[in-house]
């Protein structure tokens, strides 16, 4: 357990340098990532923010080994992702990465418990039952484990998804707009849990969001715009994030004008 809220920044677990990702060619080309550089500190809860089309989702997909880049390097826990084959990336995802998606993405035919154990079973590993018990208790879903996703509320489904992401103690958990499909109360509860997971268990979490309130739960926030990381600061509050975003908008309007 390494409560990493201290002033000294811990060693980065992900280092992404000069990432370039372009969709389409010629005039229709979209630069999703345009020489983006970012490092994620281990054991901390980082929010990645930016307006639609800023490249924040692509950034996350690349860091998680879901997507490839045109150029640049990404190291995750010392492994250079850009040099891995599709198959090796699959294995890496299985071993080192957990995911929480906006739309829960549970396997509808499996029960909550089976969904939680799924990544472990895909990796051919046994679940650490003490750890899983602790997770489901903390998340308050121990009563719902034998239910299937369609019998759970949105908040419950997302908590199952969080338990699934954490069950294998991955090096990094990526959360893509985890509160996007939840009401504000369920959303806040989930964010509080992510915060707790980071602080109490030292879990590295990278959350992509466009919601300043959500970003306020993180240890650090990074801002992306037009495929580049343009800013970032520690200990964000919702208000500070809002202010910073307002400045971007002002700059953007000046540029447009």
């Amino acid at each position: 357990m390494n409560p990493s809220t201290g002033p000294a920044a811990p060693a980065p677990i992900i280092v992404a340098e000069r990432l370039v990702k372009t969709y389409g060619t010629g005039a229709a080309a979209v630069h999703a990532l345009d020489h983006a550089t970012l490092s994620i500190a281990a054991g901390r809860f980082t929010a990645v923010m930016g307006p639609s089309g800023s490249g924040k989702s692509t950034m996350m997909h690349v860091m998680a080994g879901l997507d490839s880049v045109d150029s640049g390097t990404v190291r995750l826990g010392g492994v250079e992702l850009t040099e891995l084959s599709e198959r090796e990336r699959t294995v890496l995802r299985r071993r080192k990465v957990g995911f929480v998606f906006q739309s829960f993405n549970l396997v509808p035919s499996l029960t909550a418990a089976e969904n939680i154990e799924l990544p472990l079973r895909l990796a051919g590993k046994r679940a650490d039952s003490a750890w899983v018990d602790e997770l489901v208790t903390t998340l308050g879903i121990q009563e719902r484990l034998s239910h299937r996703p369609n019998e759970l509320s949105g908040g419950q489904q997302q908590r199952v998804a969080v338990a699934r992401a954490l069950a294998s103690r991955p090096e990094v958990v990526f959360a893509d707009e985890p509160t996007g499909a939840l009401d504000s109360r369920a959303g806040r509860a989930l964010l509080a849990f992510l915060q707790r997971a980071s602080r109490e268990f030292g879990q590295t979490i990278v959350m992509v969001t466009h919601d300043p309130v959500a970003a306020g739960f993180a240890d650090r926030v990074e801002f992306l715009a037009d495929g580049q990381v343009v800013d970032g600061f520690d200990h964000p509050t919702a208000q500070a994030v809002l202010d910073r975003m307002a400045r971007f908008d002002a700059v953007a309007e000046e540029v447009a004008a």
Partner: peptide, 16 residues
Amino acid sequence: TREIGLLRALGMSRAH
């Protein structure tokens, strides 16, 4: 499609 993608994201190989 979505579910299979999810399984792939969670580490299921193509062969699987």
